[in-house]
Nucleic acid binder design. Structure first.
Lengths: 352, 352
DNA sequence: TTGAAAGCGCTACCAG
DNA sequence: CTGGTAGCGCTTTCAA
C-alpha cells in the first residue's frame, strides 16, 4: 500500500498497521481493558472468579487487539511439561500405522492434548534424532513405534519423568509400556485353519522379517505346523530383510517352483498385496491369508488376520495420559486381540 | 528401591536421585561447567565462536546433567514464531489425506520443522476450535484442508502474518494460497474415455457431493457429456450429502433400475470401493473409473483418475516455508495434474 | 572469546 | 474479586 497518496488519514492508517502487525500480549489487553495482566490471565485460565463485567471488558479488548493466548509461554512454567504429546511413527503411508495415528489423535483430541507427529521413514538412524527434536519441545509423553533395535538413549528421559509408550513392538533396553498385538495367536490360528482345509505345504512370506512382529508371527506359524505334526524345516519360509527386493517377484518364483506351496500366510498388508499381485492370472491360485485387514479385502475375497489399529492407538494414548497423570505404577504390556476373517481365499482347498 | 538397607552409599544415591529428578537448565550446565549461561547458549545455537575447550567442558557438563535445550523457551523470543507448522486434516483414515500428510511431513522433516497435526473429523464445527489451538501454539504457518464453508475467522491471523495454505479445496472468505487438483480435467478425461468406448449412459456417484472438489468433478463429467452431444439431465447423477447413507446400497439400486447406466464414474476413493462392492457378482458389471488411485487397484483391474497426494503435501509445505521466509508475494493457486490410468474396468464396452 | 542484565508472554504466590 | 512481583529457560543487546 502506498502512504504517499494518503493525506490526513495517513496517521490512522499507520496506527492500524502497527496494531495489526505486532501480536498483542496479555499486557496489551490488560492496558486497554484497564485491568492487571493477572486478571486477563484469570479470564483465560477460567480458574479464579472474575466479575462478569470485567470479563466482558477484557474479552472486548482482546477481540479488538486480536489477542490470542500464547500456550508456549504458558507451558514454560516450572516443571510443567506441556500437555502436548509426541508420536514417532514409522512410515506415514502404511495404512496400519495411520490407523494407529488416527486412534491416538482421536483419544488426545477428546482430552484437548495437541499431538506432534514425526516419522522415521522406518530408518533406525533417524529415530534418535527425531526423538530429540520431540523432547526438545518438552512433550509430556512419547509414543513410538520403535524402529531401531535399541532405545536405551531414552532411559535418561524416562528417569526425568517422560513416559514412553512403545506401540506394535516393545522397546529394547528401555523400561517402557508397550501395546502390541497377539501376533503368535493370529498366525497360529490362520495356519491351523489352512491345515484344517487340507493344506500341507504352507508358505510364510514377509519383508522385513527380523522385526519383533515378524519374529512372533513366524513363530505362531511354526507352532501351528508343529502342533499338526507337519515338518517345520523352513523350506517354505520366505523371510526377506531387504526392502529393495520386490516381494511380488519372490512370491511368483515360489509359486512356480517344483514343490510349490498350496497356501500362503502373508506376514503383513504389504506382503499380502504382493502375494495377490503375484497370483494374478494363475489357474489354481494358492490359498491365502494375510495379516492386517485392508480396504478392498472384502471385494477381493481375501481372508485375513484382522485387528483394530485405531483401538491400538487409542489404548496407547490412554496409557500415556494415565502415566502423565500418575507417573508411578508398574510398566504395562498390553496385548490386543487378533482374529481370523474368512472371506474365501483362506478356505480354498489345495489343488494341484 | 529401598533406602533402609543402604548404608554409606545412601547419600550418593539420594544425590543421584535429586539430580536426575529435576530437569537441568542452561544455567545448571553453566554453573557446572564454570561458564556463563550465554556461553552455553552459544554452544547450542552454534552461531558465535566458542573455544574448543569451552565447548568440550560445556558438553560434558550437559551430558552429566542430561541437559536438553528447551525449544519452547527458545521460541518465546520476541516476534519469533516457532518453526513449527500446523496441519489440520479433514477425515482420519482416508488414504488420500494421509498421502498429503506424508508429503508435508517429509518436506518439513528435510527442513527441520516440527509438525503439529490436528483433525476436524470432517466436521465444520470443530474447525475453528482446532485452528485456535494450533495458533495458540504459535505455529509459523497453517496448512489446512478446509471443511467448513467459511474461513474468515482466520483473516485476523493472516494479517498478523501467519501464512495459511489451503489444500485440496480453496479457503472461503479468506485470502490464502491454495493447492488443488485438476479436478475437472480428471473427470472430463475419464468420462470422455468411457464415451469413446461406446458408453452413452454414464453415471456419476459420490458422497458427499457439495464440497468444492465434487462440484468441480461433476462439472468435468457434465462438460464431457455435453462435448459429446449427450444429454446432461442429471438422471444418472448420484449426489449424496449424508455420510450415513451407505453409497454401496445406492449404487446397487442404480444398477438394478430399468435404465441402468453402463458405466460409472466414482467421485473419490470411497465411492469407488462402494461401487466395487455393489458390483460384486454381477454377470455384466458396468465400466468403472474411480477418482484417486488406491493400493489394490492394479490387482482389481480398476481404472482410475490418478494424482500424487504426496506431491500435493510437499507442494503445500514448500509454499508454507516460502511464505514464512518471505511473507510478501501474491497469493498463489497451484493446480496439480491428474491423469487416467487404464487397468481394464474403464475399458469395458457396454453390455446389456 | 566471554559475561551481565533485560526481556519474551504467561502464571503462581502472596497481598490488598 | 483484583493487583504487584518474581520467576519459567532461553536469547539478545551491550560491554568487557
Amino acid at each position: 500500500m502506498s502512504h504517499a497518496v494518503i493525506g490526513a488519514g495517513c496517521r490512522a492508517h499507520r496506527w492500524l498497521r502497527v496494531t495489526v502487525q505486532s501480536r498483542a500480549t496479555l499486557a496489551d489487553v490488560a492496558k486497554l481493558a484497564g485491568v492487571s495482566a493477572k486478571t486477563v490471565s484469570r479470564v483465560y485460565a477460567q480458574r479464579d472468579r472474575v466479575s462478569a463485567e470485567t470479563v466482558e471488558r477484557v474479552l472486548s479488548a482482546a477481540k479488538r487487539l486480536r489477542f490470542r493466548p500464547n500456550s508456549l509461554a504458558r507451558s514454560l512454567r516450572r516443571g510443567g511439561p506441556s500437555k502436548t504429546i509426541g508420536f514417532i511413527m514409522g512410515e506415514l503411508l502404511n495404512p496400519f500405522y495411520y490407523g494407529i495415528a488416527a486412534g491416538i489423535e482421536r483419544e488426545l483430541a477428546a482430552h484437548g492434548s495437541p499431538l506432534i507427529v514425526a516419522t522415521t521413514d522406518d530408518s533406525p538412524d533417524g529415530e534418535e534424532h527425531v526423538a530429540d527434536a520431540l523432547l526438545a519441545q518438552r512433550v509430556g509423553a512419547l509414543l513410538m513405534i520403535p524402529v531401531g533395535d535399541d532405545q536405551s538413549y531414552l532411559e535418561g528421559e524416562r528417569q526425568l519423568g517422560t513416559p514412553v509408550i512403545a506401540i506394535d513392538r516393545p522397546a529394547r533396553n528401555l523400561v517402557a509400556d508397550a501395546i502390541v498385538l497377539e501376533n503368535r495367536t493370529g498366525t497360529h490360528t490362520a495356519t491351523a485353519s489352512l491345515i484344517v482345509h487340507g493344506h500341507r505345504d504352507i508358505a510364510y512370506v514377509c519383508n522385513p522379517a527380523s522385526v519383533y512382529t515378524q519374529l512372533e508371527r513366524v513363530q505362531g506359524y511354526r507352532d501351528a505346523l508343529r502342533d499338526a505334526g507337519l515338518p517345520v524345516d523352513g523350506r517354505h519360509e520366505v523371510l526377506l530383510d531387504d526392502m529393495s527386493i520386490p516381494l511380488e517377484d519372490t512370491v511368483r518364483e515360489l509359486l512356480c517352483a517344483r514343490e510349490a506351496p498350496t497356501a500362503i500366510v502373508a506376514g503383513n498388508n504389504r506382503a499380502c498385496v504382493a502375494a495377490l499381485r503375484a497370483m494374478r492370472g494363475l489357474r489354481h491360485p494358492p490359498a491365502l491369508i494375510g495379516f492386517d485387514d485392508f480396504d478392498t479385502a472384502d471385494v477381493l475375497g481375501v481372508s485375513v488376520i484382522a485387528h483394530d489399529p485405531v483401538e491400538m492407538g487409542r489404548a496407547a494414548a490412554r496409557l500415556a495420559l494415565e502415566r502423565m497423570a500418575d507417573p508411578a505404577g508398574f510398566t504395562t504390556r498390553v496385548e490386543l486381540p487378533t482374529w481370523l476373517i474368512r472371506r474365501g481365499s483362506g478356505e480354498r482347498p489345495p489343488e494341484r
